[in-house]
């Protein structure tokens, strides 16, 4: 009897030991690369596959989107559209037209009150485009607001026109999310497939495992400190966060963040951060990015109805930290708090 059991026990222990050892030995180390573009940090962490090559390629794709959409770069289509403001129409690429169309569609969800790609003359007025920060007068703001709305934008197929010569568009509010869309398209085709890729593009995340991982643990950044206030679990997804701590300047102890509320012309003050989780579908990275601004600039009273509007369009959930630090979630997600409110 004893003789019969001993080898079986040995086999089980040996099996467990060897499995642990080899699982650990063969699980590849993630390769992390950090780049700087679009005025932010771009970090890629790839595990498995040809990780270093994947990271380089993802950076190249982000640079391409930057060259296409940049507010500053001479070769960008945004610069061409803006240069022709009040003069005539400009022909753009189908990709650029599709991105514009997506952005304008998100604006329409809340009638342009909370997100507007044509708000950029106000960003300039506050100094966010030049880094020459200042607090403008109320008159300057209302004067500028008059021509800083997307109703100045005429989009027909791949032809774009800005009616007022002072109007400008800036795709900074969707470009990072759109970059993640382009990256996800590429990652699907990579052979051999990486086990997982985490892209963090200035707070816009792409969580990619080819559909294998369903328990991504996504920390929600404490808007007024280091570390997290809690986390949510997710399948592969795009996770976009708009926060007042990303880019801002301070004057006389007051914080002025870079997200201008299109309904007032002043930096948004209703919330500290809004995090949008969208599923992996074409353009959902860009849509999530834009919706981050929509929810960031929304009062608590309208967030629920806004969510109901977008829930059928790939939005999985929303986490909001308001100006008082109170957290709320929308959608079938569970926010696990790790700190006291």
């Amino acid at each position: 009897m004893r003789k019969a059991i001993a080898p079986i026990v040995a086999l089980i222990i040996a099996g467990a030991g060897l499995t642990t050892f080899f699982a650990l030995r063969t699980s590849p180390e993630p390769v992390t690369s950090t780049y700087f573009l679009m005025d932010t940090v771009f970090t890629v962490k790839t595990t498995g596959g040809d990780a270093a090559t994947i990271n380089e390629h993802l950076h190249a794709l982000a640079s391409d989107v930057d060259s296409m959409t940049s507010y500053y770069k001479a070769e960008s289509q945004t610069v061409r559209v803006n240069a022709a403001a009040g003069k005539g129409s400009v022909s753009v690429s189908p990709e650029y037209a599709a991105l514009l169309k997506t952005a304008v569609a998100v604006e329409a969800i809340d009638h342009g009150r909370t997100f507007d790609i044509a708000i950029s003359p106000l960003s300039s007025l506050w100094g966010f485009t030049t880094k020459d920060f200042r607090v403008p007068s109320a008159k300057e703001i209302s004067d500028t607001l008059a021509y800083s709305h997307s109703d100045q934008l005429v989009l027909s197929g791949t032809t774009v026109q800005l009616r007022d010569s002072r109007s400008r568009i800036d795709l900074g509010g969707v470009a990072k999310g759109y970059s993640l869309d382009v990256m996800e398209e590429y990652l699907k085709t990579v052979k051999p497939q990486p086990q997982q890729v985490i892209v963090d593009f200035g707070g816009n995340l792409l969580l990619y495992s080819g559909g294998k991982k369903h328990d991504w643990k996504v920390g929600i950044r404490d808007p007024r400190g280091q570390g997290i206030i809690g986390y949510v679990r997710s399948d592969d997804a795009f996770v976009a966060t708009s926060g007042d701590y990303e880019r801002y300047f301070e004057r006389d102890g007051k914080r002025y963040c870079h997200i201008i509320d299109p309904s007032t012309g002043y930096p948004g003050t209703l919330n500290r951060s809004a995090t949008i989780i969208t599923d992996i579908q074409p353009m959902h990275g860009a849509i999530g990015d834009a919706l981050g601004k929509v929810f960031f600039c929304s009062p608590a009273g309208s967030q629920r109805s806004l969510f109901q509007t977008v829930q059928g369009q790939g939005v999985v959930g929303v986490v909001i930290v308001d100006a008082a630090g109170t957290r709320s979630t929308l959608g079938p997600i569970t926010f696990v708090s790790t700190t006291a409110q």
Binding site: T34, V41, I198, D200, G203, L205, L207, W216, K217, V218, G219, I220, R221, I228, Y231, V239, T241, G243, E246, S273, T275, V319
Partner: peptide
């Protein structure tokens, strides 16, 4: 970038 390294963040990614 200054990063504090070491195990123990317990999360896969940070939404920020």
């Amino acid at each position: 970038v200054i990063t504090v390294e070491g195990k123990g963040t317990g999360i896969d990614a940070l939404a920020q």
